[in-house]
């Protein structure tokens, strides 16, 4: 189904453009942040869709059927393999 467009490199989540989707490959960060992220569904293998990203300020992503707002700093600790171009 997915059109592989040659993206094999993981990129930080905040670099995804609106409507771009990706699969989470890795998470970094302290224990507390990791625990909160994992609880909200940010785990390796999960698909995320960027909903809002204006290049500055916090972001909104769609993950596991819910909209989650997160800061850019937090998003930079999530690595994703992009699925599509926009």
């Amino acid at each position: 189904m997915e059109q592989q467009t040659g993206h094999s490199q993981s990129v930080p989540l905040h670099t995804l453009l609106p409507h771009q989707r990706g699969i989470i490959t890795d998470l970094s960060g302290g224990h507390g942040l990791l625990s909160r992220m994992a609880t909200l569904g940010f785990t390796p293998g999960a698909e995320v869709t960027m909903v809002q990203n204006f290049g500055h300020g916090p972001l909104i992503v769609l993950i596991r059927g819910a909209r989650v707002a997160l800061g850019r700093g937090e998003a930079s600790k999530v690595y994703v393999r992009p699925l599509n171009d926009v």
Binding site: R36, M37, P58, A66, R67, V68, A69, L70, G73, E74
Partner: peptide
């Protein structure tokens, strides 16, 4: 101390 991370669900 550590600033609480900004990550929250946006309810419908």
């Amino acid at each position: 101390g550590e600033r609480a991370a900004f990550i929250m669900e946006l309810p419908l």
